[in-house]
């Protein structure tokens, strides 16, 4: 098997995640889709790392995880406080940035 297949899988997962961001309204699910996209990227990095025979790709994936962790912490905090004030987890309810 050609390891390029890992890249195809990563592309597929990324696209699914992006589509999820576009069609779901629940902020938490939205967040999960973002995580899915990040993981797809990580998979691509790991595959590249193997192809090029160095560890830099893995390092990048490692940093991506750390940043994702930070992002999730802050993002979920935002969701919680949003839910407290609006009693809703729908992104479409936060549509006040228009005339």
């Amino acid at each position: 098997m050609n390891p390029v297949n890992y890249l195809y899988l990563a592309a597929l997962l990324f696209t699914i995640g992006a589509a999820g961001v576009l069609i779901r309204r629940n902020t938490i699910v939205l967040f999960m889709c973002v995580e899915l996209m990040l993981n797809a990227c990580n998979l691509a990095f790991v595959a590249f790392s193997r192809m090029h025979g160095n560890l830099d790709g893995q390092i990048i994936a490692f940093f991506t995880m750390v940043v994702a962790a930070a992002e999730v912490v802050v993002g979920l905090a935002i969701i919680v406080s949003l839910f407290r004030t609006r009693h809703s987890a729908s992104v479409d309810d936060a549509s006040l940035m228009k005339l």
Binding site: V21, V91, S95, L96
Partner: peptide, 12 residues
């Protein structure tokens, strides 16, 4: 301005 509907998903 109709494009500017305030929905984050539209912008996405």
């Amino acid at each position: 301005r109709k494009l500017q509907n305030g929905y984050a998903r539209s912008y996405a």
